[in-house]
């Protein structure tokens, strides 16, 4: 191990609630005035601000996506959604309940992994740090088949498999993320997450919900601390040391801010949450982040990202 291995490379969020408020307010006004057409451009501005304000080792991330790409994606997603609901209501009107259920669940099993895949592929190909682009190389057919398998296992085990489902999905997604000549790995396993969730459910019940702050902390740290970054055999780890008090503070204060301002404090809630979470995260290990080399793949289809938007699936990393 070289001397770099103990250096913590930190994340930070430099955005402010005030700046974010102006962007969200302007986006809202423009989206309303254009009857929603401006939405993809509004999303572009919002994402660009969030990326630009998020720093790793004192340099910001960048979002290179454009409103035009996301607008085309939105139109395609809209056609898909209309088609889906059209067939759904046609079957409903004709009273073909069995066909309807089969169609609905088959459609959902098809669309959700497709949306996740598309979202990762588009969003990561449009993200960079020091102009080194990210890349997602997952295969949608494999993801869809795995997704189906995990859903069936979750149903058969009456939900017990959920922890393994979450870990498997993250593992598939992260193992296919590249960042220049660096690749990501996810090493969390279902057993550990199951123990966290089992403990979480039992103790939250016994303590009338008080334990849920510890549960949330364990989940967040579990997701983050199992991310690895590899470069030619060298490994770095992503680390988070969020504690229950911080979870409590974030949840309660954010909730109060939202309630007492009728939601107007939303931009401040976003910025303070990101500031807090980023400040607790760092990368430690042997990977040389000053020695990353560019990857040139270009991918401009935002369909998955927009389908994910319609399904209200947040891009998660």
């Amino acid at each position: 191990m070289d001397s770099n291995s103990s250096i913590k490379i930190r994340f930070s969020f430099l955005g402010t609630g005030g700046e974010l408020f102006k962007i969200l307010l302007l986006n809202w006004i423009l989206t309303v005035l254009t009857l929603g057409i401006y939405y993809p451009w509004a999303k572009e501005k919002y994402l660009k601000y969030l990326y630009n304000s998020s720093q790793f080792n004192n340099d910001p991330f960048r979002f290179h996506g454009t409103g035009k790409e996301m607008f085309i994606g939105m139109i395609k997603a809209l056609v898909l959604v209309i088609l889906f609901y059209g067939i759904f209501y046609l079957l409903l009107i004709n009273g073909q309940i069995i066909a309807l259920l089969v169609f609905f669940y088959a459609g959902l099993f098809f669309i959700v992994p497709l949306a996740i895949h598309g979202s990762y592929r588009y969003r990561l190909s449009r993200s960079s740090w020091r102009n080194i682009r990210f890349r997602y190389s997952g295969n949608k057919t494999i993801l869809m088949l795995n997704f189906l398998k995990w859903v069936i296992l979750t149903i058969v085990t009456l939900g017990i498999y959920t922890s393994w489902f979450k870990c498997n999905l993250r593992k598939y997604l992260y193992d296919n993320i590249y960042f220049g000549n660096v690749r990501f790995r996810y090493v969390g396993n279902g057993e550990d997450l199951f123990v966290i969730n089992f403990k979480g459910i039992v103790f939250s019940f016994l303590t009338f919900g008080i334990y849920s702050f510890w549960w949330k902390k364990d989940q967040f740290n579990f997701y983050v601390n199992n991310i690895r970054i590899e470069q030619d055999g060298k490994i770095s780890k992503l680390q988070s040391n969020l504690d229950a008090g911080e979870v409590f503070e974030l949840i309660v204060i954010n909730y109060l801010m939202m309630v007492f301002t009728f939601g107007i404090a939303y931009p401040w809630v976003v910025s303070r949450s990101l500031k807090k979470l980023y400040s607790l995260m760092y990368v430690v290990g042997e990977v040389d982040f000053d020695g990353l080399a560019q990857n040139t793949e270009n991918y401009n289809d935002a369909l998955g990202d927009d389908v994910a938007d319609f399904l209200d699936i947040d891009f998660f990393i």
Partner: peptide
């Protein structure tokens, strides 16, 4: 819903 789409739940309640 056009005015308040894509914003927080509290605003939706409002």
């Amino acid at each position: 819903s056009l005015l308040f789409s894509d914003v927080s739940t509290v605003q939706t309640i409002l």
